[in-house]
Structure formats: C-alpha cells, structure tokens
Simulated assay, not measured.
Amino acid sequence: MGEQKKNTIHLVKLCVGVDSLEQLEAWRAQRRRESGEATSRHVTRMWPKQEEALLNGGSLYWVIKGVIQARQRVVRLDEVIGGDGIRRCGIVLAPELIRVAPAVRRPFQGWRYLKPEDAPPDLAERREGDTDLPPELRAKLADIGIL
C-alpha cells in the first residue's frame, strides 16, 4: 500500500449484491457514467467519528463473498440529506479499485474501522494473460502463505 501516514484509519464494508470484483468495477463505472462524476460515492447512515484519520490517507476496503478483495481511497465525506430528512454520510471514493491480498472476513452490518497494520497489502499490477483465481481459493492460498 505504499507508505502509511501517521494517524490513518480505514473502513471495511461488505459489498452486498456483488459476486465478483469485476462486477463491482462494472457497477461503479456505470454509476460514474450516469452521474457524470469522476469519483464514486457510497452513502451510509453513520458518520465516521474518526473522520480526520480516515481523510488522512484512508481507504474503504470491499468485502466480496466473504473476502476482502479491493480498496478505494477515501477522497472526502459529504453530507447527504435523504428524502426522509435524515442526515447521512456520502463517502466519496477515488474511481480506482486497487486489488489487495485476499483476507477472509466474517459477515457484519454497516462498516467497521480497519487499522493500517491489519489491512491486507496491495497486490502487484495484473499482467496481460493473468487469470483470476476464485476469491475463496485466493484467500485459502493467502492463508497458507502461497500468495
């Protein structure tokens, strides 16, 4: 992940309704085309109490099918008022999905903080001709130290 800044915190979030990293990439790209925005935004009910640390180089790590597979850098937090008048947090994310070493994660609701020392490392850039392993296999190989 490169050099970590001091006082940085990350978020980890289940990616509900998405079966693969490619599906998440396609969905995010479609949403950016529809909105005309260069960034992505995920709206959540809770505002991170550790906002300053999150905005100091933090990322949102996506859990897909029980495995952390990618992250997106957090750009800013926007206030979003829903049709019901309730204040929500719009987590604005850089458009790039960065693949990370797979890490198994139990189901949970909402989002959770993730300390930098507990965050999975970024994977090297994919090379032409590389094939994707199923996330479950990647996670098992990572657990035994092969990936």
Score class of each variant (00 low, 15 high):
Ala119Phe: 03
Arg127Leu: 10
Ile64Thr: 05
Phe108Ala: 09
Leu14Asn: 08
Glu52Phe: 04
Glu3Met: 14
Leu133His: 03
Thr39Arg: 06
Gln72Lys: 03
Glu128Asn: 10
Leu60His: 08
Arg126Tyr: 03
Asn7Ile: 04
Val74Gly: 02
Arg45His: 13
Ala101Gly: 04
Ser59Lys: 13
Ala53Asp: 15
Arg126Asn: 04
Lys13Ile: 01
Arg112Leu: 14
Ala142Val: 15
Gln4Ile: 09
Pro48Ser: 06
Thr8Met: 07
Arg73Pro: 06
Arg41Leu: 08
Leu14Asp: 04
Pro107Lys: 07
Pro48Met: 05
Ala119Val: 00
Arg88Asp: 03
Arg88Met: 14
Gly90Gln: 12
Glu37Met: 03
Leu137Lys: 11
Ala139Met: 05
Met1His: 12
Gly129Ile: 12
Ala26Tyr: 00
Leu54Asp: 09
Arg138Asn: 09
Arg73Trp: 05
Arg127Ser: 11
Gly145Tyr: 09
Asp84Tyr: 09
Gly82Gln: 10
Val67Thr: 08
Pro134Met: 04
Ala142Glu: 14
Asp132Arg: 12
Ile91Ala: 00
Ser35Asp: 01
Ile81Glu: 12
Gln69Thr: 14
Val12Ser: 06
Gln69Cys: 12
Arg32Asn: 00
Leu77Met: 06
Arg76Pro: 15
Asn7Pro: 01
Ala119Ile: 01
Arg127Asn: 08
Glu96Asp: 11
Leu14His: 11
Ala142Tyr: 15
Leu21Ser: 01
Trp111Gly: 04
Glu3Ala: 15
Ile9Tyr: 01
Asp84Pro: 12
Arg76Thr: 15
Phe108Asp: 07
Ser20Ala: 01
His10Pro: 01
Glu37Tyr: 03
His10Ser: 03
Arg87Met: 05
Leu141Gln: 08
Glu79Asn: 10
Glu128Lys: 11
Ala124Tyr: 02
Arg71Thr: 06
Pro120Leu: 11
Gln4Tyr: 04
Glu25Ile: 00
Pro121Glu: 12
Gln109Cys: 07
Leu11Ser: 05
Ala103Glu: 11
Arg71Ser: 10
Thr8His: 02
Lys140His: 14
Lys6His: 06
Gln72Gly: 06
Val16Trp: 06
Ala142Cys: 13
Leu141Arg: 12
Pro134Asn: 06
Pro134Glu: 04
Ala103Gly: 03
Pro107Glu: 07
Pro120Lys: 13
Leu24Arg: 00
Arg28Thr: 00
Leu21Asn: 00
Gly85Cys: 03
Glu117Trp: 12
Val63Gly: 05
Thr131Ala: 12
Lys140Ile: 15
Glu34Val: 00
Gly17Leu: 02
Lys65Asp: 07
Ile91Thr: 06
Leu21Tyr: 00
Arg106Asp: 13
Val16Ile: 10
Glu25Gly: 01
Pro107His: 08
Trp111Phe: 15
Arg126Met: 11
Trp62Cys: 09
Lys5Ile: 15
Gln30Asn: 01
Lys49Gly: 10
Ile86Lys: 15
Asp118Ser: 11
Arg76Glu: 13
Glu128Asp: 10
Asp78Tyr: 05
Ser59Asp: 15
Val74Asp: 04
Gln69Lys: 08
Gly83Asp: 09
Arg99Gln: 07
Glu96Leu: 10
Asn56Cys: 07
Arg45Leu: 14
Glu51Ser: 09
Leu54Cys: 07
Glu125Ile: 01
Gln69Ile: 09
